[in-house]
């Protein structure tokens, strides 16, 4: 495994993603999602919204790095808000 050059931060990052996927899987079996239509221009399930918000979060971080010199945690907070908004009303 040493060739994969793990660092604590990336390890935590991927653990979170994996836990999130497992969590979504369990949530799905406990109470199956109902596709619905929010402010996004398409009908989405819970998993779709998670994907959209994660992809959006990645782009928010990239955009932050490209266009500002401010600290990255600001972008992370914006991304968290975005995640919450999409999951709740998307």
């Amino acid at each position: 495994m040493s060739w994969m050059a793990w660092t604590p931060i990336t390890a935590v990052f991927f653990s979170c993603i994996i836990l999130m996927l497992i969590g979504m899987g369990i949530w799905q079996t406990v109470s199956p999602t109902v596709p619905r239509r929010g402010f996004l221009p398409l009908t989405t399930t819970r998993g779709d919204r998670l994907f959209i918000s994660l992809l959006g979060a990645a782009y928010i971080h990239l955009g932050w790095l490209a266009f500002t010199d401010a600290a990255l945690w600001v972008a992370s907070i914006i991304a968290l808000f975005w995640l919450f908004i999409v999951m709740r009303w998307g």
């Binding site: 040493s2 060739w3 994969m4 050059a5 660092t7 990336t10 990052f13």
Partner: peptide
């Protein structure tokens, strides 16, 4: 893909 992410945050001279 995980490896790529790991590489992307480090300066690697050798393992």
């Amino acid at each position: 893909l995980m490896t790529v992410v790991n590489y992307s945050v480090q300066d690697i001279f050798d393992p």
